[in-house]
Design a binder for these strands. Structure first.
Lengths: 294, 294
DNA sequence: TGCAAACTGAAACAATAATTCCAGTCATAA
DNA sequence: TTATGACTGGAATTATTGTTTCAGTTTGCA
């Protein structure tokens, strides 16, 4: 088998794409990764496609078959073999071994990794400690919301939003990333919405168009931006349905919104996470889109 | 014993060892593991041998072939198939899938979570399944970045940003929530910054003010917004330092930014999480503020 | 514009893997 | 002890998977 390949190579029948330096193939994942990154730019179209896929879905490469990966990466099975060979491997299986060995190690070390992290945490840079802190806060917030989120309320909100003529999104300052994400996603999904405060115009004027057939989705956290509160209160007075995402039953939004969601984000050094709120925002967006399909 | 006889009599040619309750096979690793432990004592010699081996070398089962595992466990290939069938699986491959799924993602996946919810008798509405999905994706993304994030690179970026005269933030479309968050936080912290695309003005005009003493922080993910790429490339050509957050070594930002961060967000139904990116963004913001204090 | 080389897709082919079958062994109970 | 059925080993069979081939297409260059 191998000797046959060598023979073929000598006769010039063997496939070697473009700038192939006939170096030996990397035996560990990190070298392989580096090699792929280095070579990718000079690779032909389909091989580059495989390179990208391999880096982004390395688990799939480890587990999949030539056929299944080819399907997922949208190439021919033969392209995968060519890709492997162009990196110096005997064939796809040979390359796959490297991906598998990595996964093996990763799993083996999983328990030890926390220990490893602690060791490095001592020497870790200031910035990576901060990163750890924010990641912890995000994870904690997500777990909290998972426990607390009321499915019935969620369903009610989705229902209202799905029926709404236009969805008005109010979220300023710290909540603006959330409302702007929702506006972008709603837009992509073809759902009419109006992001208050986005344009140069007056926010109060924008929201004055909201009617009973619309829904206002307001997002506000301590300290509640006074402008948000005022806008929402005025709109509520005109009997426009309000849904709110806020952080406490004492929020000024709580009494005027139905339903309203309590999302308490954990913080690190006073900077609150946004992970849970964002997750809820994405949920509402996608759920509304799915509901509307029917 | 009696039931075994009945099975053998009715199903004649199929092999069903000893106390086979014809329950459906576990679909997740933990249930499978429990089932094996429970059954092992009453299993015939060779099957018990396989049971022991499977529990002690579960990653071999995930990666190996019938032949290689049979060799390692010192049984016949057919015994492995029998073992799988005795647990209710169609064959060895079916059983192997369960071992593989465990290695695939250490976060509970979608199917398992739904199952989990059913077990806990939570009324799983459609929307709360979606929420679960996004929360999973967020947590997975955070874990991934925790592993991959390079502390030295982070330090380098913080250093550059701390020394910058003005920080230019470029992030459009899907990345806009991130860049707008950073702009808001930098503003609060008294750090001069310019959020490109925020005002009504021309983005290219805004960024043309950037000089060598400033730093551009660009955020862009597949499919890279062409406007972002063009702006960053033009700015890079003028030797303005660029820091990028993107999702692949093949990103058009990767070659022109130094340092650049690879953040791969997991997705649910095609909607990518933003949790990891946001966590990184918050880290940069806060770390820069702390650095400047000194 | 025409040519050669590089690249790609589809299908044939070869190799390997999973599964089934059956003859034979072993333990048990009449 | 012998008959019966559970259990086992190994080979035969079938299915799946990886690899190669080749015709056709594209690309780069003269």
């Amino acid at each position: 088998m191998t000797s046959k390949n060598i023979h073929s190579a000598v006769l010039g029948k063997f496939y070697f794409p473009c700038l192939c330096q006939n170096m030996e193939a990397p035996r560990d994942f990190e070298s392989l990764r580096a090699r792929i990154v280095e070579r990718a730019p000079s690779l032909p179209r389909r091989l580059a496609q495989v390179a990208t896929y391999a880096l982004e879905h390395s688990d799939e490469i480890a587990f999949g078959t030539v056929a299944s990966i080819a399907l997922a990466a949208e190439v021919q099975p033969s392209t995968l073999v060519r890709f492997s060979q162009s990196l110096g491997y005997a064939g796809f299986s040979d390359l796959q071994d490297v991906f598998r060995s990595r996964l093996r190690d990763r799993i083996m070390n999983y328990e030890e990794r926390i220990e490893h992290m602690r060791e490095h945490a001592i020497t870790a840079s200031k910035a990576s400690v901060i990163f750890s802190g924010f990641s912890d806060a995000s994870q904690k917030s997500l777990n909290d919301l998972r426990e607390k989120l009321d499915a019935a309320k969620l369903e009610e909100a989705v229902d209202m939003l799905a029926k709404a003529d236009t969805i008005f999104l109010i979220g300023l300052r710290r909540s603006f990333p959330i409302s702007s994400y929702m506006s972008y996603a709603f837009g992509k999904l073809g759902i009419r919405n109006n992001l208050i405060g986005a344009t140069g115009g007056l926010a109060s004027e924008d929201v004055s168009f909201a009617s009973k057939r619309d829904v206002v989705l307001a997002i506000s956290f301590t300290p509640y931006a006074s402008e948000t509160i005022k806008l929402v209160q005025d709109t509520a007075a005109r009997n426009v349905p309000i849904i709110a995402i806020t952080d406490s039953p004492f929020s000024p939004l709580a009494p005027i919104a139905k339903p309203w969601f309590e999302v308490q984000e954990a913080n690190f050094e006073g900077f609150r996470s946004m992970a849970a709120t964002l997750s809820l925002a994405m949920t509402l967006t996608v759920a509304v889109a799915e509901r509307r399909k029917k």
